[in-house]
Structures are given as C-alpha cells and as structure tokens.
Amino acid sequence: MKIKNMLKYSGLAALVLTVAVGCASAPKEEAAESTATQETAASSMEAQNAINEAKLAAEKAQAAGAAWRDTDGLIKQAEEAMKAGDYAKAIALAEEARRQAEAALAQHEAEMAKMGAAGSASSSYEVVRGDSLWRISGKSEIYGNPYQWPLIYKANRDKIKDADLIYPGQMLAIDRAASSADVAAAVNHAKTRGAWSLGVVEESDKAYLAK
C-alpha cells in the first residue's frame, strides 16, 4: 500500500511540474515573437524612410534638370524589395539612389558656378541631345522651374511647331523680361495642358500662343 501511495504522489508531482514548466515557457515564446514583430516593423519603417529620402533627393535633381536616368530605376527596385520583405536590400538600394541624386545635383550646381553670372543671364540656349522644353526650363540658369517651359515655347514660336519636339543644335531665345502675369499664365498652361501627342500641335497650345 505504501508503494502504491508513493507512486501515486510521484505521478501527481510530475504532472504539477509539467504544467509549471509549460506555463513558464509560454510567456518566453510570446515575448520572443513580440520582439521579432517589433524588429520587423522597425526595419520596414527604416526602409520606407530611406525610400522617401531617395525620392525627395531625386525630385530636387529633376527640378534642376540634373536627374540621372538610373536613379528612378534604383528607387523602383528598392520599393519592390520592400514589398518582398527584403528590407536590408531596400535600404541599400534607396541609399544608393539618394547618393546618386545628390551627386547629380552637386555636379550640376558646380557646372553652373563655372559658367558665372554671365552664363546665368544668357538670353539664348542651344538645345542638346536629350533636352525638352520642360528640362531646359528647369535648369537653374534658365528659370529653375520646369513648369515655366511655355515661356520658351512662346518666345520661339517661329522655330518650334510642336512644343514636344525640339532638336539638338537649335538656338532658343530665353525671355528674361517676362512679367509675373506671363509667368503665371505659363505655369497654369503647363499644369492644365492636357494630353499631348508627339508631332501634333495641341489645341491647348494654340490657345496659349493666341493669348
């Protein structure tokens, strides 16, 4: 009988110990899962911030007409990596894009500084390969605002038929005496122009030139 009671008490003790161990391990596992979730959220936020900074730098370079083609591609790759959950890759790509945009802008500003005040006040511009009225207008030595491109279009209506089609070597006049009203009208047209087709003179452009 004593042996039977001993076995009974031993089994009961083992059961209590098992329950105790189970209760003790559950919080540890939950804590580990909570920590992993927090780390993932932090990495995701860091990746998103890196992408936002890259986009901001790219926008500044674009506004100055100094953007490099590879920058947008790097940002898109970073966004794809983030969607796939590869936050480390997303951060690396975004930081590379940001550095590239900042370098492009710095290079552009250095070139403008070399040109000096005389170049900044130039009343003409020679079109180079890859140019568009939008890009030319965005250059700091021209207007520093791509939305002012209609001013160039209007000043060169005798040379430019389609605002979307210019050629390397063309010498374009730059209107340095545009009034605030002229600038406002140009910006408004650029923002409300509507759809366009290469090689076609849009009706909205005709209406702008007629004003």
Rank of each mutant, 00 (worst) to 15 (best):
V187H: 00
A36T: 08
L209I: 13
V21I: 15
L93M: 01
Y167L: 02
I75K: 05
E53F: 01
K114W: 05
D175G: 08
L15H: 11
E203M: 07
L172P: 05
R193K: 12
K159D: 15
E202I: 03
S124R: 04
G22D: 14
E59W: 11
A66P: 01
A90H: 05
G116I: 03
G119A: 13
A104F: 04
S132P: 09
Q62R: 15
M82P: 00
L12F: 09
A103Y: 15
E141D: 08
E29S: 05
I91Y: 07
H108P: 02
M171D: 15
D70F: 05
M1V: 04
D72T: 06
G65T: 03
S140E: 03
N145Q: 08
A104P: 12
E141K: 02
A207S: 06
Q48K: 14
A42S: 08
E79W: 00
A81T: 01
A97T: 09
M45E: 05
Y87E: 10
A155H: 07
E126K: 12
V21L: 15
E126H: 00
A24F: 14
K2M: 04
A210K: 14
A155W: 11
E46G: 04
M1L: 11
S197L: 11
V127Y: 05
A181D: 14
R157P: 00
E95L: 13
G11M: 12
W196Q: 15
S123M: 09
A97N: 10
A163D: 00
K206D: 09
K154E: 09
A58F: 08
S123E: 08
A47D: 02
A42Y: 04
A36L: 14
L151H: 07
E96I: 01
P27E: 08
K211I: 10
T35H: 09
M115P: 03
E102S: 14
A185V: 01
I75S: 07
S140W: 03
S10A: 10
Y87L: 06
M45D: 10
W134I: 03
M6R: 12
K114Q: 15
G11W: 08
C23T: 15
L7I: 07
K28W: 13
A103S: 14
S120Y: 15
V187I: 15
N52M: 08
A155Q: 13
A66G: 06
E203H: 02
Q62H: 14
L7P: 00
V21T: 13
A54F: 02
H189I: 00
A177R: 10
A163C: 05
R193G: 10
K89N: 09
A163M: 04
Y143L: 02
A173C: 01
E109W: 12
A210W: 12
